[in-house]
Design a protein around this nucleic acid. Structure first.
Length: 562
RNA sequence: UGGAGUGUAGCCAAGCGGUAAGGCAACGGUUUUUGGUACCGUGUACCGAAGGUUCGAAUCCUUCCACUCCAGCCA
């Protein structure tokens, strides 16, 4: 027997760094993290990992987490996205409480910080055009504006802010090292002129700080101790540290982890937006989308998603996790919560010849995994529908469903014996005729009869028609290394080209079918998970289709039948 | 090309000098009124490769290879 405490819990590499910091008394034992999305799109499963790591790590060490919108580029950001992002984080079960911030809250402070560095001779206004700057950066050559006087720089920077210069006329740059091996350190631009309406500050600014000037300083202002971000920001760390040190503000530590990729799945915001704009999907919350809102609409649960991220783990290796792990985690959670419901996809009539007239319903267990789940009444009569798949004219020994002269249990009801069946001219079965074993009622079976299998059914006269959205993968997207193709260019050279992601879109990702469900589905509730027996997990979609209740398939069941 | 990072079974991931945890997947089996769930069992991982140090290396050193990211007045 293993007790939970017997298991040596292994720390991930971030936790090890934090424990060392705590042991060293670096931040007096405090752990304060932040999740800093840019409000330029919806959150996807990759963000869920960043949210999970920042919130859970802080929680583990008794700290808290801020939500900060990194809104320093007004041309891409929208308030709609802010609201959508907040909703998704809350849905995942995380709360920033009163610690909601915006990088734009710090525009004044950031401006003052820039003045400090200009005064220290560590920043200058550069009037070179973008191309010249690029060439100089590449060559490691100083800009001709690099040695302007502090007074000149101060004056020009103030004029930049005042709107005296047109867009793109000049920028404010840090004076670091034009020969630094890390190109980010070759006098990076920290302010640009951009006359664009900002979703929060409106038109009060025409200069906007760059990411590198806003992020670390915002972390510092908010008292962040550990700035946990994804690996692509690794090269920014020297600059992050340089800025905090030069301005002389409280320090924080940036730690990078690898992003989460799912196989067959695209998460680039740009590409997801393209799917929407090209009407390949309905919107950000299309159930096929890898967004948090898409997963929510599809019926995934926060617990399942978080469990998935937990199991995927935290490291610096490029993660390309198989969908099967996600699905396993979702199923694990759903299995405990879902009400079992009978649904027939392709009905054939099952006539029972000896059902007592006074029998109008049977009681079926809501969820065998839940002892408190209770039972419900399901209409029952001598005329039922069963699924075509559940009847075979010829059956071998392994067949566990209905066949001529064989027994099968009707879920929650009787064991029945197939006496006969009827076919049309084409040889398709149109009706199955059977008789019940009267004393084989589910839960009070005294018949002694054995049935190899159990099938589901629906009363032919008392049921609910429904629509079902069954999803296949939206993409058949391979790993990055496989997304490249060797192509011969104009010069006859073989070059590697990235294949357009649209090539991997599966046009059959959505299959809509009608089915008949048992009557209880007429009262289906949104957000409540259902398991359609042997079909999978489903949830009610807020959209209606032909006035029929529509269900989205959340996950399939493991099916060993073949 | 330059800079940075990463390489442990099909996919993740522990291990950090003493002889390779765990999860998912796969494959068997038991239980079962869902061919579900639960439970039990099954993996010769030559630890990217080649050298070296050591009594002993996935763990240290050297070289090489592969992959990812960056080289925006995006974040």
């Amino acid at each position: 027997m293993h007790l939970e405490s017997d298991k040596e819990e292994s720390l991930n590499f971030i936790e090890k760094i934090i424990e060392k910091d705590n042991a060293d008394g670096l931040y007096s034992g405090k752990v304060h993290t932040r999740f800093p999305p840019e409000p330029n799109g919806y959150l996807h499963i990759g963000h869920a990992k960043a949210i999970f790591i920042n919130f859970e790590t802080a929680k583990k060490y008794g700290g808290v987490t801020n939500l900060r919108f990194d809104d320093t580029n007004p041309t891409t950001e929208k308030t709609d996205y802010v609201e959508a992002i907040k909703k998704d984080i809350h849905w995942l079960g995380y709360d920033w409480e009163d610690r909601l911030f915006f990088a734009s809250d710090n525009f004044n402070a950031l401006y003052e910080y820039a003045i400090i560095l200009i005064n220290k001779g560590k920043a200058y206004v550069d009037f070179s055009n973008a191309q010249t700057m690029d060439e100089e950066k590449r060559a490691g050559k100083d800009s001709s504006f690099r040695n302007s006087s502090i007074e000149e720089n101060l004056m020009h920077f103030q004029k930049m802010k005042a709107g005296d210069y047109p867009d793109g006329h000049c920028v404010l740059r840090l004076k670091i090292d034009m020969n630094h091996a890390n190109r980010l350190m070759r006098d990076p631009v920290i302010y640009r002129i951009k006359r664009a309406h900002h979703h929060r500050t409106g038109d009060s600014w025409c200069i906007y700080p760059m990411y590198d000037w806003a992020h670390g300083q915002s972390d510092s202002i908010e008292g962040i101790t550990h700035s946990l971000c994804s690996l692509e920001f690794e090269h920014h760390r020297p600059l992050y540290d340089w800025c905090q040190e030069q301005i002389d503000i409280p320090r924080s530590k940036q730690i990078e982890f690898s992003r989460l990729n799912l196989d067959y799945t695209v998460t680039s915001k740009r590409k997801l937006l393209e799917l929407i704009e090209n009407d390949i999907v309905i919107g950000w919350d299309d159930p096929r989308m890898p967004t948090i809102s898409g997963m929510r609409r599809r019926g995934y649960t926060p617990e399942g998603i978080k469990n998935f991220i937990q199991k995927a783990g935290v490291s610096k290796r490029d993660q390309f996790i198989s969908l099967s792990l996600l699905e396993a985690c979702i199923r694990e959670d759903l299995n405990k919560k879902s009400q079992r419901v009978m649904v027939v996809m392709d009905p054939i009539k099952l006539s029972l010849t000896n059902v007592p007239d006074n029998l109008t319903h049977v009681q079926v267990e809501n969820n065998p995994e839940d002892p408190e789940g209770g039972k419900r009444d399901v209409p029952f009569s001598g005329t039922l529908f069963i699924d075509r798949q559940d009847f075979a004219i010829e059956a071998n020994r392994k067949w566990r469903r209905l066949a001529p002269d064989r027994n099968v249990r009707l879920k929650g009801a009787f064991i029945v014996h197939c006496d006969d069946y009827v076919c049309d001219e084409a040889g398709n079965v149109t009706e199955v005729i059977a008789s019940i074993y009267p004393d084989s009622m589910s839960g009070q079976d005294t018949s002694g009869i054995k049935a190899k299998g159990t099938i589901q059914w629906v009363d032919a006269n008392d049921h609910t028609p429904i629509m079902i959205n069954n999803y296949d993968r939206l993409f058949s997207h391979p790993k990055p290394s496989a997304q490249k193709e060797e192509v011969i260019d104009d010069q006859g050279e073989t070059v590697s080209v990235t294949v357009d992601f649209k090539k991997y879109i599966n046009p059959n990702s959505l299959e809509v079918s009608s089915a008949i469900g048992e009557r209880s589905l007429a009262d289906a509730v949104e957000n409540k998970p259902y398991q359609f027996l042997r079909l999978g997990y489903y949830c009610l979609d807020k959209e209606k289709n032909d006035n029929k209740l529509t269900f989205n398939r959340t996950a399939t069941l493991k099916d060993n039948w073949r």
